[in-house]
């Protein structure tokens, strides 16, 4: 990219600036509205575990490896692995989609297995080894799965892509390791690398642009080359 002078900013910087402006604009209106709702509603408040004491944020130290590099962090215990990667380590390749384990955009590989990083606390990964999309490959030195997604046009907007790619890499390893799936015909035989298997096994990664057929082509291509 060849931006010059004042225009030299990243897409992320621009989006963060826009979000901050939006938050400032919305805040004065939102606060009184919320107060009124609490006073007027007849509905019971959410369950709070009434006997549980109310706590201030609690900090905890954790050390794990991300893309081969040791990371020492001190985090609010509530911090998910996803937020630790994005907000504390600034590895923004891993995306936050639904934040509830339903979309797969946050998929990373931990100790060799794909997981939803949004549904895992960072402090629970002491001593663990995390691989994100940045650790699979970088521009100029792409992982074969990244290259195949580019070649087969396995995306439109690209937001689900890092999760799709991390998921696909670990998914092919699961087939190699002999893990069966819902569509495996014979449970006692080794699962085969087929399109039906890829579709079933990738169902935890949603693509709202609907690039599924090209994603399957990319995965098939990589699986063929590895075979």
């Amino acid at each position: 990219m060849h931006y010059s002078g004042d225009l030299d900013m990243t897409r992320r910087g621009l989006l963060l600036g826009t979000a901050a402006t939006a938050a400032l604009t919305a805040a004065p209106f939102r606060a009184p509205a919320r107060a009124a709702t609490v006073g007027e509603t007849a509905m019971p408040p959410p369950a709070t575990g009434a006997d549980a004491p109310s706590l201030s944020p609690v900090l905890s130290k954790v050390t794990f490896t991300v893309n081969g590099q040791r990371r020492d962090l001190e985090l609010d215990t509530r911090t998910t692995l996803l937020d630790a990667l994005r907000e504390h380590l600034h590895l923004t390749g891993t995306k936050k989609g639904c934040d509830h384990g339903q979309c797969g955009a946050c998929t990373v590989i931990v100790d060799g297995q794909r997981i939803n990083s949004c549904l895992s606390l960072a402090v629970m990964h002491e001593g663990g080894s995390v691989t994100t999309i940045e650790g699979l490959g970088l521009p100029g030195k792409l992982h074969p799965m990244q290259a195949a997604f580019v070649e087969h046009d396995g995306y439109q907007c690209g937001y689900c892509t890092p999760g799709q790619i991390c998921s696909a890499v670990a998914m092919l390893d699961e087939i190699k390791a002999g893990v069966p799936s819902h569509v495996t015909a014979d449970l006692t035989a080794a699962p085969q690398a087929t399109v039906d298997e890829y579709r079933e096994r990738m169902s935890g990664n949603i693509c709202r642009c609907g690039a599924y057929s090209n994603i399957v082509d990319a995965i098939s291509d990589v699986a063929r080359r590895e075979a």
Partner: peptide, 16 residues
């Protein structure tokens, strides 16, 4: 049991 497990959730969730 194997079939029931594989019918549940997603690959990512079953790993955890």
């Amino acid at each position: 049991l194997s079939r029931a497990l594989l019918a549940g959730a997603s690959g990512q969730l079953r790993n955890k």
